[in-house]
Nucleic acid binder design. Structure first.
Lengths: 350, 350
DNA sequence: GTCCCATTGGACACCGGTGTCATGAAGCAT
DNA sequence: ATGCTTCATGACACCGGTGTCCAATGGGAC
């Protein structure tokens, strides 16, 4: 059977012992070469390195992990409808991991389920993950953070929130960014501005709402409750939330949606009602997903540096591992910026 | 230092020896319990299981992998602009992996680079992956398949292609699905139908093109070369490809774009030119991404069962591992279906 | 009562690396 | 020439599981 496998042409896996034998040194010496130990004769090192290169030997990561008592797997935990965001995050994390021996293991979870906690616990303990990155809304769960601490699993939370714990948090200044966006609407002449808020319990939703309210307050514009509609960060919720805003008299001349999916919903709803964008209605979203440039007119939005934040999160995690005494100097707070596109114009003279 | 770590409240990791001591049996017996060995006294089993449950003991996967000579990591290799597709694929794979001890490790690669091959080789050998799922266009690389064979790494390719190797392939019938879509356009009365093809070298692009040509041939409609424009599966390429089709006289009354991104590009281009969709131009895309329902009018498209295909791919991979003699019976060929939305209408009477 | 077999559990080596410590050789001062 | 330190290397145990093989136990057939 074993022989048969060989016959299938599979390369027989080399071990450190094979290399040691070929180089006529002890396995420990080979181990020293692999780990760049400084107390090695240059000659010996070269000899062993040559053989490693020739044979294409790669140390077994499982054995290494076992001996070292830690492994090289980073987990990404998410529950989020925004595919583009998650993929960008994955990309950022992987950029940071590139060239290291870390790999990224992913785990989408179902926030709706009561078993999330157990699910994640199983995830980190079963594989003994080195660390995890938590995406919203998981990152807002403090019990989860405690559990990870207990399990001895490092973590970094991604959030659009206050920076209560820089070591474990990478955040963007959503509040200020939204305030900027709304100031822009006000500068264009809008006074009746609707908000489609994100789900209750999401810190990002709350931050964005506060930014919205702040900008209006600054300008001395009153904000009747009716101008705030609840959304769920989904296209459909944006669609139905707009309906209620459209029914108001007078109708708002601009709407800020707490994410792009909902902004697209607003645009779609406007189209169905025959409301011209941007002439009769200005729209601003949040996230700068590709969707914003696919629809007509392209949507103004707030862009946050997802990839850079993912990279920073990963570096925070592994920094403590590879950090040679140097502190982790990754920035923890990132700035979002307003992207101006054709979905905003001054309100029609009324 | 070690003590300090304890003080931080990290749960001390239990080993099989701890459990053995507590249960007053040998470690091998504990191992037997874990692996559900059938030749165990019921009493002993219960006793050990109780202790495992109480203590929350989880076997160290690295040690397990080392002893077993194989690990429990599945890789997903992709290079693809379609975020939604990749995420759906991840979801399908993870559904299949759920409840097993396998985890999913992801690796986006840059097809443009000459180092793709080395990159992937490094990926599978460094981590000694159990197997990988290859997404297009990686799945079309036969040299890659050979390399994986050599490395002793199982693989399953996802493709929209002929089923040359059911054991290693999960495919959808793109050709027939596209032919159906085009037949639908013909049935609506269209005779001048443009094609925006996918990138050269992509099997999916070729399949879709063949389906397109086949439907026209069936209907006895000639296809001048000018009605075929090249695209790159990106929104921008769809945009510019449409320009050349719009410049034709007479202008095509319908366009089939080989994916949704490009179809969205067509729609956008039409909007800029003031061409009404669907009155003056019908559009059909491919993939059924959420984008299709966000734009106006919603795009007709071809839906393929991504999640199910991902699940099938993963089951194929691990089936050989957990398969207790039972052959892997996952279907290898999946059907795509035409989704009719508002972007198609009979051509204007001309 | 004896023998044999089936059942159950344990001792031991092993997977492929790493840490600890000892050993031998070389370099230097005395 | 001797004694000491320094450097390079190797022997060996260990990480936490699993496979092999053998011993002990108990029950049934004779």
């Amino acid at each position: 059977m074993a022989k048969q496998k060989q016959d299938e042409g599979q390369a027989p896996k080399l071990t450190i012992n094979d290399i040691a034998r070929m180089a006529d040194v002890s396995k420990k010496t080979v181990s020293r070469v692999i780990n760049r130990s400084p107390l090695l004769n240059r000659e010996t090192r070269d000899k062993v390195e040559a053989i490693i290169r020739e044979t294409g030997y790669v140390p077994n990561p499982q054995a290494r992990a076992l001996a070292l008592g830690r492994n090289f797997l980073i987990g990404l935990v998410y529950d989020n409808p925004n595919a583009q965001m998650i993929l960008s995050m994955q990309r950022g994390i992987l950029e940071a991991l590139h060239g290291t021996e870390f790999e990224l293991v992913i785990r989408p979870v179902d926030r709706g389920s009561n078993l999330v906690m157990d699910d994640i616990r199983g995830f980190v303990t079963r594989q003994r993950l080195f660390g995890v990155v938590l995406l919203p809304p998981m990152s807002e769960n403090d019990a989860l953070a405690r559990m990870l601490d207990e399990q001895g699993c490092r973590y970094v939370r991604m959030g659009s929130a206050v920076l209560d714990d820089p070591e474990h948090m990478v955040a963007s200044n959503d509040k200020e960014a939204v305030a900027d966006a709304v100031r822009y609407l006000i500068a264009q002449g809008h006074r009746r501005i609707g908000l489609i808020a994100g789900p209750h319990g999401f810190r990002s939703a709350q931050e964005r709402r506060e930014g919205f309210e702040q900008a209006l307050a600054e300008a001395g514009i009153s904000l009747p409750r009716s101008l705030i509609a609840d959304g769920q960060y989904t296209f459909e919720s944006g669609l139905s939330a707009s309906e209620s805003l459209f029914d108001l008299t007078p109708r708002p001349t601009a709407i800020f949606a707490s994410n792009d999916e909902m902004a697209a919903g607003v645009l779609y709803a406007a189209r169905m009602r025959g409301i011209a964008v941007p002439e009769e209605l200005s729209i601003i979203g949040f996230d700068d997903t590709p969707l914003t440039t696919r629809v007509w007119p392209p949507l103004s939005t707030v862009r946050w540096p997802i990839v850079a934040m993912g990279r920073a999160a990963a570096l925070k995690l592994i920094g403590t591992a590879i950090g040679e005494g140097s502190e982790v100097n990754e920035p923890s707070m990132f700035s979002s910026t307003l992207i101006r596109r054709a979905s905003v114009a001054p309100p029609a003279i009324s």
